[in-house]
Each structure stands twice: as structure tokens, then as C-alpha cells.
């Protein structure tokens, strides 16, 4: 079927089986490789993107539901040349190790900050439930607080 949506601000129409997970459309059809596959079962968060501003695990989101939606991936998180506060904080805290889980965490964090501009540790624990095998949670928590600061200072 034909599916039309906006991705990172650009209009796209693709031809795909509507039941294909959106993740594979993003990665293999649109060639945006920043969104990762970890489990395919909504269990790790590596594939997190935004659909109309909501954090969504794209491995478990059928492409047909993307019709008419605004989709953002890690490649579209920053506006032009200036880094998104989450990315800036991630750099300041030198968060990534292998890096594979990081786009998913950054997307989940960016969505969290839209809802809760100043998350407490409890908010972070409740909302950031992706998996990082390298164990970067400690730096991520610092980076999430730092991102909130940067974001609030920018307003």
C-alpha cells in the first residue's frame, strides 16, 4: 500500500506492506540508520522515534499507522546545525560507550522533556526504561538533568 508521512520535516510517500514495522521502513527504505533494531518486540527501546511528538518503539508500530503523521528520528532531532539540548548534554557528559542504544535513549529523553521540563530522579526512573548493556545509566541520568537545564535556559 501507499503510505504518506512527514519524516524529519520532509514529506515522503512509500510503497510498502502496511504491516511492516515502521522501523524497517525508516532503516531500509528511507536509509536512516540512526534508529536501531535491538529486539523487535518493544522490549529494549533501541528503535525509539517520535510520532507526532510521542515516543514510540518503531519496531512494534506498523507502517500503515504512520499515514499522515509527523515522524522524527535521531537524524532530525537537532534543528539544522544547532544540537538539540539532549545531544548537547550527552556530549558534555560523554555518555556513549558502544553507542548502539543511545539514539533510542536520546529520543526517549527528548520526548520526556517535552512533557516534564524538569524531571526528578523518580520521573527519570519511571519514564526512561530502555536498555543499555554497556551500563551508561549513571552518565545518562546526569545528562538528562543537564539537558533539562540547557533546554530551560534556551527558552
Amino acid at each position: 500500500m501507499k503510505i504518506s508521512f512527514y519524516i524529519n520535516g520532509n514529506a515522503h510517500s512509500i510503497e510498502a506492506d502496511g504491516n511492516t514495522p515502521l522501523l524497517w521502513v525508516i532503516r531500509d527504505v528511507l536509509d536512516l540508520k540512526g534508529t536501531k533494531f535491538g529486539c523487535g518486540k518493544a522490549a529494549c527501546g533501541a528503535c525509539t522515534i517520535h510520532v507526532d511528538g510521542e515516543a514510540v518503539r518503531s519496531c512494534s508500530y506498523s507502517a500503515k499507522f504512520a499515514e499522515g503523521k509527523n515522524i522524527t528520528t535521531i537524524e532530525g532531532l537537532s534543528a539544522g546545525d544547532s544540537l538539540h539540548p539532549v545531544q548537547q548534554a550527552w556530549i558534555e557528559e560523554v555518555v556513549p560507550q558502544c553507542g548502539y542504544c543511545q539514539p533510542g535513549f536520546m529520543m526517549a529523553t527528548a520526548a520526556l522533556l517535552e512533557k516534564i521540563p524538569n524531571p526528578t530522579d523518580q520521573d527519570i526512573d519511571d519514564n526512561i526504561v530502555n536498555i543499555c548493556r554497556c551500563g551508561t545509566y549513571y552518565r545518562m541520568r546526569k545528562a538528562i538533568h543537564r539537558a533539562a537545564e540547557i533546554k530551560n535556559a534556551n527558552i
Binding site: 540508520k33 540512526g34 537524524e75 537537532s78 544540537l83 556530549i91 543511545q102 536520546m106
Partner: peptide, 21 residues
Amino acid sequence: IPRVDLADKVAGASIFGMDAA
């Protein structure tokens, strides 16, 4: 020194085995 792969990994631009084509 900050990691040399930091900027790419934060941009989601690093190519992992599974991203290869």
C-alpha cells in the same frame, strides 16, 4: 580527552555492523 567517536554516536551517524549496506 572526550571520546573521538562522541559526536557521531550522539548524532546517530556511526555505522554499526547492522547498519552496513
